[in-house]
Design a protein around this nucleic acid. Structure first.
Lengths: 193, 193
DNA sequence: CCTTTCGCATACCATCGGTATGTGAAGTAA
DNA sequence: TTACTTCACATACCGATGGTATGCGAAAGG
C-alpha cells in the first residue's frame, strides 16, 4: 500500500488538519481527543504516537497557523520597495489576515491560555513578530523612524493589531476595517522622524 | 452563630478570594474544583450553590479583578484637571496596574479563552475600556484629538496596553517600563489635533 | 412549636486526558 | 525465502475532573 514514512506523514497531516479545524471552530477546551481521532479516522494510540499530548498537538497547529499568516505578511511587505511602505503594508496585511475567525481563535485566544503567555510569545516572535521588530529596527537605523527602543514599540503595535483584529471579526463591518486601517496608519505615521 | 445572610455572604466571599488566588497563581485549567473548595474550607455543594459552574466562578473573579483595576485607573485620571492629562494618566495607570502578574493571568490570558472573546470583551468594556472610549470621545468633541472614529482607536490602544503589560511582566525591568510608558505617550500624543 | 426554607454536605456519575500493552505489517539481514 | 527486528498504530484500561441528584440540619416564619 505504501512505505512507512509516507503512511506516517499522512497520518500526522490528517491529525493536524482535523484538529485545527475542530480547535478553530469550537475552541481548544471544547474539543476532546476522541472527537479529533474520530475525525481523523485513527485512534488515540496514533495521536500519542505523533504528539506528546493534547497541548503539544495544539502547539503544532498554532505553529502552522502562525507560519501561514507570516507568509502572507512577508509577501505583502515584499511587494513594496521602500522600507517604510513595507512596514505599513505588512501591518495592514497582518490586520486583514488576523481577522479570519478560523485563525484568530487559535492564534490569539486559545494560544496564550493553552501554552502559557511566555511560550506563546516565543512562538509568535519566532514566526511573526520578529519581522515587525526587524522592520522597525531597520527603519530606526535608516533614520526614517525616531531613534527609540524598538522592543516596547514592537509589543505595543503587535498588541494593538491583535486586539483590533479580534474586535473586527466579532463586531466589525467593512467600514470598521477601513477605519481601523486608517487609525493604524496614523499611529504608524507618528513614528516617523 | 450568625444569620443566614451573613453566612451566605461569608462563604461566597471566601470562595471568590481563594479561587482568585489559585487562578492567579496556576491558571484556570490547572486548578481543580476540589482544590478550590478545600482551600475555602467548604465542599463542592457550597460552590454549586453559589455559582453555576467553574466558568461562572471564574467570571465572577474576573469581574472583581477588572473593577479593581478600573478603580485605580479612574482614580489616577481624576487626579488630573485637564481632560488630556486625564487620558494620559489613566493609560499610564492601566499599564502599571496590568503589569501585576496576579492580575494579568486572569484578566488577559485566561479571561478570553475561558469565557470566549465576546463575553470577555463585554466585561472589559463595561468595567474598563468604557472609560477609555468615553475619554477619547470627550477629547474628540473638545477638539483636542483629531476627529475620527473612536471605536477602532479604543481597541488599538487597549490592545497595545494589554500586550505591553504582559511583556513587561514576563521579561521587563524598570527600564523597560519607563521606555514603554514613553513610547505609549508618543503614540497618544500623535492623536492630538 | 411546627413547618418551611435554605445553605451546604455526601454520594455518585460520565467524560476526559493519559498510559500500558498488544499486534500486524514494513523493513532488514542471512 | 526465512527469521528477526522495528515501528505505526489499535485496544484496553486508569485516575482525575467537572457536574448532578439527593440528604440533612439549622435558621426563618407563622
Amino acid at each position: 500500500m505504501s512505505t512507512r514514512a509516507e503512511q506516517r506523514e499522512r497520518t500526522r497531516t490528517t491529525l493536524l488538519r482535523e484538529s485545527r479545524r475542530l480547535f478553530a471552530g469550537q475552541g481548544y477546551a471544547a474539543v476532546g481527543l476522541a472527537e479529533i481521532v474520530a475525525a481523523a479516522g485513527v485512534t488515540k494510540g496514533a495521536l500519542y504516537h505523533h504528539f506528546a499530548g493534547k497541548a503539544e498537538l495544539f502547539r503544532a497547529v498554532l505553529d502552522q497557523v502562525q507560519q501561514e499568516v507570516a507568509e502572507r505578511v512577508v509577501a505583502a511587505a515584499d511587494a513594496e520597495k521602500e522600507p517604510w511602505d513595507q512596514l505599513v503594508a505588512g501591518c495592514q496585511a497582518f490586520l486583514t489576515a488576523s481577522t479570519d475567525p478560523l485563525l484568530q481563535r487559535i492564534m490569539l485566544v486559545d494560544g496564550p491560555a493553552v501554552l502559557g503567555w511566555t511560550q506563546w510569545r516565543q512562538l509568535d516572535t519566532d514566526n511573526s513578530a520578529r519581522h515587525l521588530r526587524e522592520a522597525l529596527t531597520g527603519l530606526v537605523e535608516l533614520g526614517v523612524i525616531t531613534r527609540q527602543p524598538v522592543e516596547p514599540l514592537t509589543h505595543l503595535l503587535s498588541g494593538a493589531m491583535n486586539e483590533a483584529a479580534l474586535w473586527l471579526a466579532a463586531a466589525g463591518g467593512p467600514r470598521d476595517l477601513a477605519d481601523t486601517q486608517a487609525a493604524l496608519a496614523r499611529l504608524l505615521d507618528s513614528l516617523r522622524a
